[in-house]
């Protein structure tokens, strides 16, 4: 997995509540058997008009935000389906950080598996960062995972919380499966005990 340490980039404002995974990547793009290539269809229904041309109203189609690497979004980002295609699409587009007051659990988990950082902040902080993100060409934020800080365009700094283990895995770019397989003795012991105690679970 790719490491994440520090990122400076343009933050796009999306002040919408409940941005669901169907909005992030509609189902017609879930038919792929690959992880790559979903970026062009990120937010497809909001991003393109019926004739396939870009919707100029949509934030990521505006010049200042085309190269955004951060999204500042309304509450409950990533709700709905478990599709990992949502973080894959964001990642493929170039978005590495999403900041919101809350995230749906599965989406939140999925981000970390892809070297992406979802950041939970309180409402006041979100409002401030949303203002920063609305400054167009000047909407640059710096996210530092080591110090757990977000620095705004004016130099103002806010702290954020993150689970220690997740932070460690992101900083080191660790592969979960590899880590777990180091514990295969424990898994074997567990299975042996369970086979004895709950034989009906084994078909």
């Amino acid at each position: 997995m790719e490491k994440f340490t520090k990122l400076t980039g343009v933050a796009a404002p999306m002040p919408i509540r409940n941005i669901d995974t169907d909005m992030i990547i509609p189902k017609q793009f879930l038919k792929t058997i690959k992880r790559e290539g979903l970026g062009k269809n990120l937010f497809d229904e909001m991003r393109y008009l019926d004739d396939g041309s870009e919707n100029p109203e949509f934030v990521l189609n505006q010049d200042a935000y085309r190269n955004a690497t951060i999204i500042v979004a309304g509450d409950n980002f990533g709700c709905g389906s478990s599709r990992e295609h949502a973080p894959w699409a964001l990642n493929d587009f170039g978005i590495k950080v999403i900041i919101s007051t809350s995230f749906a659990d599965i989406f939140y988990n999925n981000c970390f598996k892809n070297g992406m950082l979802p950041i939970r902040v309180d409402e006041d902080t979100l409002n401030k960062l949303m203002d920063d993100a609305e400054r167009g060409a000047n909407a640059t934020l710096t996210v530092d995972l080591v110090s757990q800080t977000i620095t705004g365009p004016d130099g103002g700094e806010v702290k954020f919380e993150i689970d220690e283990f997740r932070k460690h895995c992101l900083l080191e770019g660790l592969d979960d499966i590899g880590l777990t397989q180091q514990k295969s003795d424990k898994i074997d012991d567990f299975e042996a005990k369970r086979k004895a105690d709950q034989p009906w679970m084994y078909r």
Partner: peptide, 20 residues
């Protein structure tokens, strides 16, 4: 509970999941 595809791979490979 529902999981993402990376976790599907984790379960297939190890029959376990990392959770809080």
């Amino acid at each position: 509970f529902g999981i993402g595809t990376s976790e599907v791979e984790h379960v297939l490979a190890t029959q376990t999941l990392l959770q809080k």
